[in-house]
Structures are given as C-alpha cells and as structure tokens.
Design a protein around this nucleic acid. Structure first.
Length: 629
DNA sequence: CGCCCTT
C-alpha cells in the first residue's frame, strides 16, 4: 500500500482516546490534515507564510541595546560534591535575535508560565537560573514561534527545547490517539512531538533528559534508534507516546512498518540541525519531515538547534520553518573562553609517538585520584581501532567508539570511558556532537577534521557547564587548507594563535571557501539578513529590506548560570525501554490505558524513577550516567 | 571524502 493511502485510511479512522480528565479534542492542525487527505507536504522556496505572516507589526529599525541583568543569587542547595559551577563563565555572552515580533527573554524560570510539575523537575535538576539560550529560546517557543537557534556547545540546548515542548503538551492536553482499520485498532503510535538527532547515543541522552523533565507530568517520552531490537521500542510506543526521540533511519523504518505515524506531530525539534541537513542526512530528514505525513510548517511548530549553522544549511532548513526567529547566543563554538586551544604542527607519521608523549606528560595530572579523561578524535573507523590497539599495547588504557561497532559495544565504550575505567576514548565523529560527557579534561584532534565546524563541535566535548577544558590539535601538511578557518575560530575564542599557523593561513588564502565566521561575532548570522527582499517580498511597501524585521541584540552579563554539574545522580538512567515492570503486569498495552497522572505515577521519587531503567537485559542502561561521582 | 543514519 502506498504511503498516502496508508495515511489516508488510518486518518479517516483515527480515534481519540480521551485522557481521564479531558474531553476528546481534535487539534486544529489535524483538522487541516484530514481535509487534505494526508497528501505529502512539498514545501516550496521561499517557504509558505506562517500564521503571523500578515500580522507583522510596525517596522522596528535594527537596534542594539545593552542590558545588564539583575544579578540572580545562585545557590545550589544540597549539592555538597566537589563540582563547582564557574559563576563567571558566561559573562558578556552576546545574543542576537532576528525575525518579526520577537518575544522578550526571561530572566528566571519563574517568569515562564510552565506547569508546576515541570518547575519542580527543574528544581530537582538544580537548574537555578536559565542559561542564555534558555532565557531567549523558551519564550520564543512558548509563544508558538518557529525557531532556528545557534548556541554554544554545553550551554543547555536540550532543556531549551524540552521545557517548552513539555509545557505546551501539558497546556494543550493532546489526547493519545489510536487508529482503526477494518474495525480493528492498528498498532500505530501517534506522537505529538518529535525530536531528531544524528546519533543513537545522542538520542538516548536527549531521551534521558526529556524523561527527567517530564517526571510526574504524565508526558510520555519514548526513544527509537537503530542497532537495538525493535521489540522493546515498539512496546514502549504501544504504552503511549507524547514525545518521540529518534534517529532518522530507525524512525523511517518504523513509519514504513506502520508502527509510527507523524500525522499528529505538533512540535518538531532537530538537534544538531546543521548536521541533520548536511550531506548524508538531508535526504532522510526531508523524507521524514516532508513526505511521511507530518503536518506542514505553520501547522506544526519547528525548532532547529545547533552550535554551528552555516548559511547554505540555513537555506535548506528554512524549508521546514514558518516565519521563524533566528537566535544566536554566545560566541562561535562552545564556551570557548573556557577551552584552552592548542595547535601543534605534527606530521602524520609522527602523530602516534607524539600522542603518547602527550599522554605521558598528562598522566600524572589527574584529579581526584583519577586519571583525566581524554577524548581523541580520528578520521576513520579503522583508524580508531588501530589507535586504540596501539595505545593499549603501550600501556595507555584506551577504548574506541565508532559506527562499525555494534551498539552494545558502542555503549560499553562510552560507559567505560565515563566511569574512568578506560580514561582514553578514541572516537570518530560519531562522538563529536552533543554528547554530554562530564569531566572530559582534554580533547585531542589526532586527525584534524575536514570541516571546521566539526572542530568546533569536537572541542565542545570539554569545557561544559562552566568547567574549563583543554583542546589540542595535531595539524599536518594535509590540513593546510583549513588553517585560515582554524585561525578565525581561535581568534573568536581569544586564543593565542601560533605564528606558524598564521603563516600557513596566509599562504593558503583563497584556496578554500572563506570562513563562514568572517562576518559575524556570533556562531552564525541570520542568512535572511541579506535576503530580506526575497523572503518577505510582499509585505514591504517602502522598499526597505529591513523595515519589517525586528532585530535586537543584547550584550549582557549573565553572572554565570545554574547549569547543574552534579545532577548525574538523576542522569543515571532515564527510563529508556524498561518501564515495562511498572506497567506490563497490570496494564494491557494500549496508548491511553497507561497514561499516568501525577498522582498515580509509580516511582516514589525522581531518583527511583531514574534508577529503574538501568541494567535491562539488553545492556542499554544509561549511557549518560555519571562520570566520577 | 568519511562520518553518521532502518534491516
């Protein structure tokens, strides 16, 4: 059966299973969807106007204001461990938002109208004060707007899209939906929110986070990714799902098997969005977002997040968005002031011996009686295995992670690294984005990446949540074309650039596309700013390309933020794939029968909740678990 | 290019 037919048929037979306290309700976006017969959404360029397209307010000229935030007292109660939040880490973070009718930022979580259960979870996670990206992004999403956001690595992006998604799910109280075909209920799950990420481990991490934020809210979070048996993931879906966190391949598979439908999607978030739209992923993402029944832009809300957002990718991404706000928070790539970047000229033949020399010198410098965690990035999977072997043979406890390993081995490697059992992790770019590994002291770019953005993401594995970190890059003759881009990244982060590297950069001027960072102080700039005539062709009567785009920029002093550094006791599980023991025995599978309310939710507290899912039979306990503590 | 992404 063709896709459209499947969708059409199941849509006509959608049944809304009312949650206990709410009457049946058909969301507006689905009414439209049904009327269209579920035809696939083919976006055009420029994108269709969103709901607010014709309600744009009077023109506001480009304005730059300076704002000093009130100092918010930061207390981390009950946090007696040795982690220290660096209060000064995020001072002078530049913020720029472009688009129409930009909702103002908030200064505290209290200003955001979120439900009490969510606020409680925020407190439980010891989030005292929103990070800059959270302060700006949450109000935008809460206001119903589409968003393209650039924020430093390690600055709290996950929560920035999870909070408002959970909050709006609770506000709207979407029913769990089931469909009926020929009088028989299908096994299709209808999530209302979808979060996509480029790697399995990152999807797991996002799931664990989202799960903790949704504790005692009744919001159901399920993760689906490849390399693991489908059965448990199906089972979790059958128990009902509000938020589905997934990697693209497994999601497509599940949709084609008619176990997941995107027809009810109201909120779509792409994490590492530039990667998701880059070569190798774009086709799959377009298929998921545009050709598998998802409501089109304007009838769903779309959020794209990354630390980097090159112009060409922004252009692709705008297909998915409607009247969006572009937000950039913080300098290029990470809390880079916190990462000491070094570059060493090392020829390929000498890299191994040089690495071992480097590792020897830092061996003695571990903290808290444990060796410092060192993450070594290489170019290829084979190279990862080879280097792992070489290091191990020479007395350096190393383990490799890459896409040729089976999932169990990938997660085992990550766990072994996080626990300190194997304090050296040799990784391909599977580990370069998004993974929050506490206490990574040193990132070594053994093979310099082909794309400077990958460099930014890789070094962002250290220096997280206000902690400092170190990054060392081995730079060889082969890498000369990237010298200029590297110099620019380092200068943005106020790093000392070795003179030989500056010389290399000059020698290779013009030999490679100019850096995308040249024009902006920030992680990216709104590509619409040079193309407003194209994007808003009919709204502008006076010919001023900027006249209807409200723009503001804040330069402010955050005084640090309450990013938790010691919440790993919460992070120790996440409930992936094993709430079966709570539900299975007394509740038959079915989307709404299991919808839990705050009162009947089984676990006694968030720790118990989080701990439940460790050590299930497939070994997929948390891989986001605590590092040292 | 190789890296990731269903079986």
């Amino acid at each position: 059966m063709a896709w459209a037919d499947v969708l059409s048929e199941s849509t006509q037979n959608l049944t809304h299973q009312t949650r206990p306290t709410q009457p049946a309700y058909l969301p507006p976006h689905l009414r439209q969807l049904v009327a269209r017969g579920g035809r696939s959404n083919r976006n055009s360029f420029p994108p269709p106007a969103g709901p607010n397209f014709n309600q744009r307010q009077t023109a506001t000229p480009y304005d730059i204001i300076t704002e000093k935030l009130d100092q918010v007292e930061l207390t981390v109660d009950g946090n007696n461990n040795s982690d220290v939040i660096n209060l000064d880490a995020y001072e002078d973070v530049p913020v720029e938002a472009t688009g129409s009718d930009i909702p103002p930022a908030v200064k505290s979580f209290g200003e955001i109208q979120m439900c009490e259960a969510l606020n409680e979870n925020i407190k439980r996670r010891k989030y005292v004060k929103p990070t800059p990206i959270q302060r700006h992004a949450i109000p935008i999403v809460m206001a119903g707007r589409d968003l393209m956001a650039c924020a430093q690595t390690g600055s709290g992006k996950t929560a920035a899209f999870c909070f408002p998604i959970i909050s709006r799910i609770l506000r709207d109280r979407f029913d769990q939906v089931v469909s009926v075909r020929n009088g028989v209920r299908t096994r299709i799950a209808y999530p209302t929110s979808l979060i996509l990420s480029p790697t399995r481990e990152l999807s797991c991490q996002i799931h664990d986070e989202a799960k903790k934020f949704s504790y005692q809210t009744g919001v159901k979070v399920v993760v689906a990714y490849g390399g693991a048996p489908m059965a448990q993931q199906f089972y979790n879906l059958e128990k009902g799902v509000d938020i589905l966190v997934a990697t693209p391949g497994r999601l497509v598979d599940m949709i084609e098997r008619e176990r997941v439908s995107l027809k009810m999607i109201k909120y779509l978030a792409l994490d590492e969005a530039d990667r998701m739209l880059d070569m190798g992923f774009e086709h799959q993402i377009r298929k998921i977002v545009q050709q598998m029944g998802m409501p089109p832009p304007g009838t769903r809300q779309t959020m794209l997040f990354s630390a980097t957002f090159p112009d060409d990718i922004q252009r692709l991404a705008s297909d998915f968005l409607s009247n969006y706000i572009f937000l950039t928070v913080g300098k290029v790539g990470s809390s880079t002031d916190l990462i000491a970047q070094r570059v060493e000229l090392v020829q390929d033949m000498e890299k191994r011996s040089h690495l071992m020399k480097l590792l020897s010198t830092q061996k003695a410098n571990g903290s808290r009686g444990k060796p410092a965690l060192t993450l070594v990035f290489v170019e290829t999977k084979r190279g990862a295995d080879a280097l792992e072997h070489s290091l191990s043979m020479n007395g350096f406890p190393a383990i490799a992670i890459h896409g040729d390993k089976v999932q169990r081995e990938r997660e085992r490697a990550l766990r072994s690294f996080k626990s300190g059992a194997t304090p050296i992790l040799v990784a391909t770019d599977v580990a370069s984005r998004g993974l929050d590994i506490p206490h990574v002291a040193h990132v070594i770019n053994f093979d310099f990446p082909k794309d400077i953005d990958d460099y930014v993401h890789r070094i962002g594995r250290t220096g997280r949540a206000g902690n400092s970190g170190m990054a060392t890059a081995f730079f060889s003759d082969k890498n000369m074309p990237l010298a200029k881009a590297l110099v620019e990244v380092m200068q943005e982060a106020k790093q000392e650039v070795p003179s030989w590297l500056s010389q290399c950069a000059q020698n290779f001027v013009g030999s490679v596309r100019s850096s995308r960072y040249g024009r902006s102080k920030f992680g990216g700039s709104d590509f619409r700013s040079s193309q407003n005539d194209y994007y808003y062709p009919s709204s502008n009567s006076n010919g001023d390309a900027n006249s209807f785009v409200d723009t503001y920029a804040n330069v402010y002093n955050t005084g640090g933020y309450g990013a938790p550094t010691s919440f790993d006791n919460y992070a120790s599980a996440g409930g992936r794939s094993s709430n079966a023991d709570y539900y299975g025995a007394h509740n038959p599978p079915g989307p709404y029968a299991h919808y839990s309310t705050a009162d009947d939710y089984p676990p006694a507290n968030i720790d118990a909740f989080a701990a439940r899912s460790n050590g299930n039979e497939y070994g997929y306990g948390s891989i986001v678990a605590s590092g040292w503590d």
